[in-house]
Amino acid sequence: MTHPQPTPDAGAQYASPAQHAPQAQHAQVHYAPHSPQQPAGKPGGRGKPLAIVALVLAGLGTVAGASIGFVTFGFVREGGNYNVVGVIGAVGAVVSGLLALGALGFGIASLLRREPARVLAGVAIGISIAGLLGLLLSGAQQLLYLTL
């Protein structure tokens, strides 16, 4: 049995293109050293601190308002003094209201400064307005109970 003899073009399909391409002179390209790109208007990569503070304050205000209900429920269940329950509720309402007002202020400031995180600021403003409306309606309900 005879083996076929290799032809000169048999290895051409596996040869690198540089072997067959004409040698051209290329100018060397020098690149500038890499520097981190910062978007315009965001020094140091910061661009939404007020919106984040507003959202955190709104979340804390919501948690504070909800936790007062659990605290008063536990206090009444253990047989605590009802006058203290009123004080706990009032302190919780003041804390929740202050956090909501802070969130509202920081959210509006974020929008006025035209920070890129408009959605975060809008969410914080919405949560804080809902919290403030809840406090106002709760206070109106307490006044209604006192007058009747």
Rank of each mutant, 00 (worst) to 15 (best):
T2M: 08
P4D: 15
T7Q: 10
T7P: 00
P8C: 00
G11Y: 11
S16T: 14
A18G: 07
H20L: 11
H20V: 14
Q23D: 12
Q25S: 13
A27I: 05
Q28C: 03
V29M: 06
P36Q: 15
P39C: 02
P39D: 06
K42T: 05
R46D: 10
R46F: 11
K48T: 13
A51N: 03
A51L: 06
V53T: 14
L55F: 11
L55Q: 14
V56R: 13
V56I: 15
V56C: 07
A58L: 07
L60R: 05
G61C: 07
G61E: 07
G61R: 05
T62D: 12
V63Y: 10
V63F: 14
A64N: 13
G65V: 14
A66Y: 10
A66P: 08
S67L: 14
S67H: 06
G69Q: 08
G69F: 14
V71T: 12
V71S: 11
T72L: 05
F73S: 12
F75Y: 15
V76C: 02
Y82A: 13
Y82D: 10
N83H: 11
V84Y: 04
V85W: 00
V87A: 04
A100P: 00
L101M: 12
G102M: 08
G102N: 07
G102T: 04
L104G: 01
L104M: 05
F106V: 02
F106C: 03
A109Y: 04
A109P: 05
S110C: 09
S110L: 11
S110P: 10
L111N: 09
L111W: 08
L112H: 12
R118T: 10
V119W: 11
A121K: 10
G122R: 03
V123H: 11
A124L: 06
I125D: 08
I127Y: 09
A130V: 07
G131M: 07
L133P: 00
G134M: 10
G134N: 09
L135F: 01
L135N: 01
S138R: 04
Q141V: 02
Q141T: 04
L144C: 01
T147D: 01
L148I: 13
